[in-house]
Design a protein around this nucleic acid. Structure first.
Length: 592
RNA sequence: CGGGCUGUGGCGCAGUUUGGUUAGCGCACUUGUCUGGGGGACAAGGGGUCGGAGGUUCAAAUCCUCUCAGCCCGACCA
């Protein structure tokens, strides 16, 4: 039983000034956490109970799936991370430090290398596999900008698991088992989530999905279909190609003088204002134009290469989508010096005529999938003040390939069902992906197969943000008055309030009720403070957010306790019911 | 790393432009009395090197220089 008279707790009437998002404000105000360091929080007694509850649920679901728990140090030597290349790849995001001998160490941001080495040291046969092990541990990332309280810290609790299999089929099975376990875990936590396919990114690997909790304060943008269950990171959306059009009867390409039209908007306005160029059936729009954007790719070896991307003029090139497509190369702007080095490019009037590996510029040219054979475009004629119209793909120009780099906007067609896509914000709560053999190869993790041959193990890696889940739960479960915890993660089942004059019958009745509830296995947070007005107690109870609030007040009968009535309030619905004191234990043990 | 804003008792803020008694207010805290179903009232208290360092001045929370920290936007990121 938690007694508020002695609980290490101080609730605040005002929001802390450094808090912006609801979870941060409420968790501090209600006395769950306090900021201790940039991006680091102290867990106060109530908060620590919630954190452990989340941990327990995660642990139980991992165990139920047959995964085994281990625990690594957070402070690790540099060597394994050098072997995998991540000592360099992780860059400034990893905390590095030296010991007294000058040896390099790091505070682990994640543990692929250590798990790989652990298995290497213990197992050597295909008979030992499959294996999946996990830990729940504090991770460190030197975030450029910690923010939003617990949602993005530099130190946070994460559950990370790793699977080990001899072949791809085994990896797929391990992946699927984790996927199922994650679905159960998030359902049990009461966290809404969508599963989006993700690009595997810097960690390497192939199949990868993220579990996102939709939240406006989240920092990931994703798209989902309003008609079907399709959801994906914007980087992973594959825009389908429309059907091709036969060339028969298509108008010839015509070069037009279009003075003073360096932008898409000025170009479209010019066409619509011209008697010769105007369309009879409708106005020209930006979607009729083909915009060619040139960027510079920087490859990991340091070399650079220009790249031209052609997208319909009504959309921008999305840098993240582009970068995901050209990874591991990085995208840099094409600057004045680059234009000077490529005289074939006329800024503002770049057209397919000079682009392409075979073209005068020799610049590789990739097209948006919407630009299919037979589509006609208004685009640059590679000469100051000139554009070309009716330029037809496949007839008048071709490119080196297709690229998914145009921005996705709300209302775009769903790649799965053709319905309408919407853009939403979310926060990554879990991530599962098939690492493949990157780490096993780097660290030489092999086992003997049935024929006695050495084979490299294939791995998967799976994370859940545990401390982040506490924040996400607070974010998705609160109202104007305070937090509203799902029962399984709540710091208590019942918040018992004394609301009566000191010296009255309420306190002894509440004491007895608290003892009875506890004996029945109900977790009780008991507001047994003296000299605190009822208003304060009610406000605190609502702020703290225990799912059921029981009030011993006016209904307590001093003369005949068996006649006493108490009030039972559901924090979430706000519904209040009066019931006989003697029924309360039975009632609250039946809640869930 | 770029742009903007902010650092004053535990929390939230005023005071800084125009330097000048003892640095102020609300909440919280202590003591007492009253009150007792929605952060109640009255009274009396305790708690501050004004983020830090250096400088200007007879005098600095206030002016100058440097520095540290926090928040927001962007870049980056499980």
């Amino acid at each position: 039983m938690l007694r508020m008279s002695t609980l290490f707790l101080r609730t605040l009437r005002d929001d802390p000034s450094d808090a912006e998002v609801p979870s941060h404000k409420l968790l501090v105000r209600a006395g769950y956490i306090r900021r201790a360091a940039p991006g680091g929080f102290t867990w106060l007694p109530l908060g620590f109970i919630v954190l452990r509850n989340v941990e327990r649920i995660v642990r139980e679901e991992m165990d139920a799936a047959g995964f085994q728990e281990v625990h690594f140090p957070a402070l690790l030597p540099k060597e394994p991370y050098e072997a995998s290349g991540r000592w360099v790849e992780y860059g400034d995001n990893v905390f590095r430090l030296q010991d007294r001998h000058g040896a390099d160490h790091l505070l682990a941001p994640t543990h692929e290398e250590m798990f790989t080495l652990l298995v290497k040291g213990m197992y050597g046969s295909y008979k030992d596999l499959p294996l999946a092990i996990y830990q729940i541990q504090t991770k460190f990332r030197d975030e450029a900008r910690p923010r939003a309280g617990l949602l993005r810290g530099r130190e946070f609790v994460m559950k990370d698991s790793y699977s080990f299999d001899v072949d791809d089929e085994g990896l797929q099975r391990s992946y699927d088992r984790h996927r199922e376990a994650y679905i159960k875990t998030f359902e049990r936590l009461g966290l809404p989530f969508v599963i989006v396919s993700a690009m595997s990114g810097a960690m390497g690997g192939s199949a990868s999905e993220e579990f996102l909790t939709p939240l406006d304060v989240g920092e990931d943008t994703f798209v989902r279909c309003i008609d079907c269950d399709f959801a994906a990171n914007t980087e992973a959306v594959e825009v389908p190609a429309p059907p091709t059009v036969a060339f028969d009867g298509l108008a010839d390409a015509v070069v037009c003088d279009t003075p003073g039209t360096p932008t898409i908007q000025t170009l479209v306005d010019f066409f619509n204002a011209s008697d010769e160029l105007r369309r009879s059936d409708r106005d020209w729009t930006a979607a009729d134009t083909l915009k060619n954007v040139v960027v510079k790719l920087r490859h990991p070896d340091g070399t650079t290469e220009p790249l031209a991307v052609g997208v319909p003029g009504d959309r921008e090139v999305d840098p993240k989508r582009l970068e995901a497509q050209v990874s591991p190369a990085e995208v840099e702007p094409f600057d004045e010096a680059d234009f000077a080095a490529n005289p074939a490019l006329v800024k503002g009037y770049i057209g397919p005529g000079v682009l392409g590996s075979e073209g005068p510029s020799g610049i590789r040219y990739l097209l948006d999938p919407r630009v299919v054979e037979g589509t006609q475009w208004i685009t640059g004629a590679d000469s100051e003040g000139k554009h070309v119209m009716n330029l037809t793909e496949g007839r008048d120009f071709t490119a080196d390939g297709v690229i998914q780099a145009a921005e996705i906007v709300a209302g775009d067609a769903c790649p799965a069902c053709g319905g309408e896509l919407e853009i939403a914000r979310g926060i990554e709560m879990g991530h599962i992906f098939q690492l493949g053999r990157k780490y096993a190869e780097a660290l030489d993790l092999k086992v003997q197969d049935e024929s006695g041959k050495q084979v490299t193990v294939t791995m998967g890696s799976y994370g859940i943000g545990v401390s982040r889940a506490v924040a996400a739960l607070a974010e998705t479960n609160h109202d104007e008055s305070g937090l509203i915890w799902p029962r399984e993660v709540a710091p208590a089942d019942v918040h018992l309030v004394i609301a009566g004059k000191e010296g009255g019958p309420q306190r002894p009745a509440a004491e007895q009720l608290a003892a009875e509830m506890e004996a029945a296995g109900v977790r009780v947070l008991f507001d047994d403070r003296e000299g605190v007005s009822p208003g304060v107690r009610f406000k605190d109870a609502e702020l703290i957010g225990v799912p059921t609030i029981v009030v011993c007040g006016r209904g307590i009968d001093a003369d005949d306790p068996t006649q006493s009535m108490v009030e039972v309030k559901d924090r979430r619905s706000g519904e209040r019911i009066d019931m006989p004191l003697t029924d309360v234990v039975g009632h609250v043990t039946g809640l869930n």
